[in-house]
Design a protein around this nucleic acid. Structure first.
Lengths: 117, 117
DNA sequence: CCTTTAGTTGAACAGTTGTTCAACTAATAA
DNA sequence: TTATTAGTTGAACAACTGTTCAACTAAAGG
């Protein structure tokens, strides 16, 4: 980043840039936001979340429902767990997953609204 | 997909699976949803969208604000345009971008809520 | 006409990501 | 103990993605 990666000559609207700059949140916040949305940005994970929005399910159920291996499902559930989108409870050998809170449902609702408008 | 990618022996909760199966939307809907969230799942694009949520801006402004080349910004704006998240208007040589509607703001709000709960 | 500036576009390359496979742990039952 | 089933995990590999670079178009001014 030695040569300027910005506009070569002049910034067009310095006042706007300064105003927006001040309104922006800390950079890491956007990375956190992006990491959250990235989890929803995959067909398998969206299906998993929407399935769990209907009912708690075990890994085996989810694998059967989506036509995936248990391994693939478990990998994705782990990612969703780390972002606190899903929780689980163990009952004997079976692990039941469910949505952590209502945020996923809200995000999906707004997303669907955008798609169908 | 010749050998079953599902649970080898038995499905644990057939009734739950059947019930959730019925409640699920068509598969392409989840792919569309994932494609939408995928656009929000990148630090650069989230910043672009949050900047545009404050004020309409031209490509040069956005590049200066985020420390990126105009090319990189333009590529990302095109992706956002294709998903109808942003629109633009041309004024002489300058192209001003802005949010298409309020859905991005809603999604970001819910996302932030999840992160800070 | 030619020059300049804003923006777009396609190819290429590095970095990331999702699935598979094999090996593993946890819990139950014989 | 051994066997069985549910689930997890790390490595590997193919597929995908974001940026850069160079070449391009669009509009304005001389």
């Amino acid at each position: 980043m030695d040569n300027l990666p910005v506009c070569e000559r002049d910034v067009l609207h310095e006042e706007t840039i300064a105003r927006v700059q001040k309104a922006l949140l800390p950079p890491e916040t956007y990375l956190d936001l992006a990491a959250l949305f990235k989890l929803l940005g995959d067909g398998t994970r969206v299906k998993l979340l929407c399935a769990l929005a209907q009912h708690e399910m075990c890994v085996c159920d989810l694998a059967a429902l989506l036509g995936l291996t248990k391994s693939a499902v478990s990998h994705q559930l782990k990612a969703l767990r780390l972002m606190r989108l899903v929780t689980f409870r163990r009952e004997a050998q079976t692990v039941y997953y469910s949505l952590s809170d209502d945020h996923v449902r809200q995000l999906v609702d707004v997303g669907l609204e955008h798609l169908t408008e």
